[in-house]
């Protein structure tokens, strides 16, 4: 590089120093957009195209099928239990981990993360081993006429396991970065612990909490592998939406399958929209929460 460039690059080319040439930019953006189009958009678009293959009428018709409605109800019920539960656990875990120092914290973090990387199949399998008729607690459950797997409780348990880390994972880094000074000030001013938590800590993390809940919810409604192992696949009774999709698909009802799939894809889109809206509306607060991981 020439001497003059070395001395006065900023004066002559103010952007050069910290950015790329316009051509490079366009090429990089083009690569990113093409990659995302091929990997992300195409599957999404396919879902809607297939769902609409026979027109809107057929699409709405497939929603009115009683088994489809039952699957939607079950999915909502499962999410209504699993998501609040994981939200509460996530809050407790992040309070303990982010606001206190203790031995074994790394191990605890790893254990909370573990469901992220367990195969969903294993997540279902463990409950079969535990609660199945041949499992450890099976004989006791049978004797007391309690049905866990192949019924709603098993589906809920498997879903809770799969979505366990979602809220905690959003909250912990944010609460860590926020430190404890605000809570300490509140306590010093005489606020109770609960009051401090509800009026100081929660408002600070509410958007991260909401985002965690949204992601947790999307995954809870969409879980397939784990639920498939513990469901029993009884039509209209223990089929969640993703399992119902598989069933419809297997009945050559491709439009019906993609119709239900489009509902779930719509949920995914709604999640992303809600998240984008939150980011736009509360840019400052979320910038901090973006520092997760």
């Amino acid at each position: 590089m020439a001497m003059s460039d070395r001395v006065l690059p900023l004066a002559h080319h103010p952007e050069r120093a910290t950015t790329e040439t316009a051509t490079t930019k366009v090429i990089l953006i083009a690569i990113a957009v093409l990659f995302l189009a091929a990997i992300l958009f195409l599957p999404l678009v396919t879902v809607f195209i297939e769902a609409l293959r026979k027109g809107w009428g057929t699409l709405f018709e497939s929603f009115s099928d009683p088994d489809t409605l039952a699957a939607i109800r079950l999915t909502l019920l499962v999410a209504a239990i699993a998501v609040p539960f994981n939200a509460v656990v996530g809050l407790a875990a992040s309070w303990a981990i982010a606001k206190f120092e203790f031995k074994g914290k790394n191990l605890l973090l790893t254990l909370i993360d573990l469901p992220f990387s367990i195969s969903p199949v294993i997540s279902g399998l463990v409950y079969v081993l535990l609660f199945g008729a041949q499992g450890w607690l099976g004989p006791w459950l049978v004797a007391h006429d309690i049905q866990i797997i192949f019924a709603v409780p098993g589906i809920v348990l498997a879903t809770v396991l799969v979505t366990f880390p979602f809220v905690a994972r959003e909250l912990i880094p944010l609460m860590q970065s926020q430190g404890t000074s605000e809570e300490e000030a509140a306590l010093m001013l005489g606020a109770s612990g609960w009051y401090t938590f509800l009026h100081v800590t929660l408002p600070n993390v509410k958007w991260a909490l909401l985002y965690g809940v949204l992601l947790c919810n999307a995954r809870a409604m969409g879980e397939f592998g784990a639920v498939s192992v513990v469901s029993g696949h009884i039509r209209g009774l223990t089929n969640t939406m993703p399992l119902h999709i598989e069933i419809l698909y297997n009945e050559y009802n491709f439009v019906g399958a993609f119709a239900v799939a489009s509902l779930l894809a719509g949920l995914a889109l709604f999640t992303l929209l809600a998240k984008t809206f939150l980011e736009w509306r509360f840019a400052g607060e979320l910038a901090a929460s973006a520092r997760r991981h």
Binding site: L77, A80, I81, P84, P153, L202, K206
Partner: peptide, 24 residues
């Protein structure tokens, strides 16, 4: 926020009982 948490806890518990009932 407080309300949300309490309500969801109650909802969760209720739903759990409901589901056991449904299974029976």
């Amino acid at each position: 926020m407080r309300l949300l948490t309490r309500r969801s806890l109650a909802l969760g518990t209720a739903a759990l009982f409901l589901s056991v009932g449904a299974a029976q």
